[in-house]
Design a protein around this nucleic acid. Structure first.
Lengths: 219, 219
DNA sequence: TTTGTGTATTCTGTATACAGTATCCAAAAA
DNA sequence: TTTTTGGATACTGTATACAGAATACACAAA
């Protein structure tokens, strides 16, 4: 008989806290004016400060939180220069992912991508947050299917930094049909099998997003 | 009068421990057979387990250490598939860096790059470790000069994972003059100002490194 | 020998205690 | 009023204590 191993992974309280905080930030329950204090959180979650501290420090290291002058942590705020840098980092990762996907040019994988785009774009009346999440899922799918854990890790790292602003979704009133077309174009670029072309297409797409973002900030 | 702010940054014991561990790994003082145990380290450094634990967990999260079945942490060992993925991640970051540098095509920056290459390649009788460090410094310089903190952070993250193996330096008997020429070629690619060409040149350089690496592992 | 089982040991995860430091506040001085 | 200054307060960083879990070990049984 061959039983499956039970202990999938030792789950610590700190991991639980980390996840809870991150989803709370994603869902907007923790906003820019909230201050996260170790003792308060410990009291609220009925556990000691130790795991809380661990989770907070991790989020700080990942650039999601920053220490407040008055003590405790707050959401990290980026200036315009940093936003640009973050978009460049996105381009590095997703561009390379596209390059590899084009090189593989696997019909099965491409079909999966098409399905994901169709599914995720199919939202009834999306809020900015809905759009951010759908967009994230689509872009993440591209990277997932490369099967490179480091690229995926860096992807998540970049997007988590943006989660509190819904940074990559400043498209408030752009219509989704436009967006759908864009994402299908990305897929089409991969399907040509031309590595360089795929990379350039992704880079351009992300660059466009950045410019949209800037105009959104200005207007 | 305007005095400079003193508190550059609050330095915690955990940061100190983190740095010490990382250099110890870099310099080969901590090898693949060493087990790092919280209590032992605490006794050795004469501090409590708390900051030790913090540093160890951070190194684990960054992929430098892994938990041992017998308790404690050991150097993380990569399999061949992971090595390939790491090289792809490198290509993503350094390729994009090259792209941006080519786009800027700034004579001053290019001069700085040339100077770094000449300085670092000028080692008398390099060991593998010396070569690894020189190579790292050169490649890091390219990314530094892009002035993008996220790219630089990801660069460090990738290279730190490799530090315990001197992964990117499996060139034991390749001669340095060859290497010097290679790095100068990278610079030349940037100086053409052709973004796509610069990226492809870097990608190819890294790909070559990977193949050299594989042959090194096999032989 | 090999195999199994109970016990000791080791090490971690979490809770708690304590001291230091930075901010805030309120009362005294200008 | 405005400014200064002493102290209360709030929070953190580090140390320590404790319980639980996993591994290693030793001894008994086959």
């Amino acid at each position: 008989m061959a039983l499956k191993s039970i202990k999938s992974e030792r789950r610590r309280l700190a991991d639980e806290v980390y996840d809870q905080l991150l989803t709370a930030i994603t869902e907007g329950e923790i906003g820019p004016d909230d201050r996260l204090v170790q003792e308060r959180l410990a009291a609220e979650l009925q556990i000691s400060r130790t795991p809380i501290r661990e989770a907070l420090l991790r989020l700080e290291q990942e650039g999601v939180l920053a220490t407040s002058a008055r003590g405790g942590f707050v959401l990290y705020r980026m200036d315009e220069g940093e936003v640009k840098e973050l978009y460049q980092a996105r381009a590095a990762i997703e561009g390379q992912a596209a390059r590899i996907l084009a090189h593989m040019n696997d019909p099965q994988i491409n079909a999966m991508l098409r399905r994901t785009i169709e599914t995720e774009e199919n939202i009834a009346s999306p809020t900015v947050r809905d759009y951010f999440e759908a967009n994230r899922k689509i872009h993440r799918r591209f990277v997932e299917l490369v099967s490179n854990r480091y690229l995926l890790e860096m992807f998540d790292s970049v997007w988590n930094r943006a989660v509190s602003f819904q940074l990559f979704a400043a498209i408030e009133n752009a219509d989704l049909s436009q967006s759908l077309g864009d994402h299908m174009n990305l897929l089409a670029a991969i399907e040509t099998g031309d590595k360089s072309h795929a990379l350039e297409t992704f880079t351009a797409h992300i660059q466009e997003g950045f410019e949209l973002q800037l105009r959104g900030l200005a207007g």
